[in-house]
């Protein structure tokens, strides 16, 4: 479904991604782990068109998407749920969710998706008229996920959904991601909480200083000595 081949990305002079190749199949839950600064967020930003690769190609459903602008990529139903609970602070919860469906036309299906998001996160329904800035951190994270869902995405990319959440909320987010995947959404998950990510996913890539270091089945990586030492805290 998604395929990156030999992608190179630079931030100014900094060589952030070095010939990264990876793929995500339809219905899969794939995770990308790595240290800070290894290029995980950069990879997601490159896929969603916020950064342009200097070299290499990105294909989505057989069509080349690198070089397209972010709006065009969103139109292909790739949702990017960015790091750090980005919401529109001065809009209400409902307006935030409706922004997620900005590129969609069909009003009835938007409404039914809104109900679906409310069913998934009842707290958002309760607070649908409040400004997003009034929500607690965990609620904002749910809102960001909900907004990504409103795109009716074929692929969702999560960038550290557990960041700054209470343990009990992390559980909730994990449940939601697993549930989405069960319902058939393809997911690419970037997570510092490597243990959680590897338990949740089927396959995983390990990014090390801009290169794919290790790839394989998540259950194998959990046993991998190097991964344990570098990312799971020994």
């Amino acid at each position: 479904m998604l395929k990156l081949s030999d992608v190179d990305v630079f931030y100014g002079k900094v060589h952030a991604l070095k010939s990264v190749s990876m793929h995500v199949e339809e219905g899969e839950l794939v995770t990308l782990i790595g240290a800070n600064g290894a290029g995980k967020s950069t990879t997601l930003k490159t896929i969603s068109g916020m950064l342009r690769p200097q070299k290499g190609s990105i294909f989505f459903q057989g069509e080349r998407i690198d070089g397209l602008t972010s709006e065009k990529i969103v139109n292909r139903r790739i949702a990017h749920c960015p790091e750090g609970r980005r919401v529109f602070p001065d809009m209400s919860v409902r307006e935030n969710l409706e922004m997620g469906a900005y590129v969609r036309k069909n009003k009835t299906s938007i409404r039914s998706d809104l109900e679906m998001v409310f069913e998934l996160f009842p707290i958002l329904k309760e607070r649908s008229q409040q400004d997003a800035s009034c929500l607690s951190g965990g609620e904002q994270q749910m809102l960001a996920i909900g907004r990504a869902l409103m795109l009716q995405p074929l692929l969702i990319m999560f960038d550290e959904p557990s960041l700054g959440l209470a343990p009990i909320m992390v559980e909730k987010v994990v449940e939601v991601i697993a549930e989405l995947n069960r319902r058939g959404t393809t997911i690419l998950l970037v997570e510092q909480n490597a243990d959680m990510a590897l338990r949740l996913s089927k396959r995983a890539y390990v990014l090390e200083t801009g290169r794919i270091g290790i790839e394989g089945l998540s259950k194998d990586l959990l046993q991998n000595e190097h991964v344990q030492k570098a990312y799971l805290g020994g």
Binding site: G34, A35, E160, N193, Y231, L232, G233, G234
Partner: peptide, 13 residues
């Protein structure tokens, strides 16, 4: 205020 947010377990160590 949340110094470990966004760090992996090894970095947290």
């Amino acid at each position: 205020d949340e110094p470990a947010a966004g760090m992996n377990p090894t970095e947290v160590d």
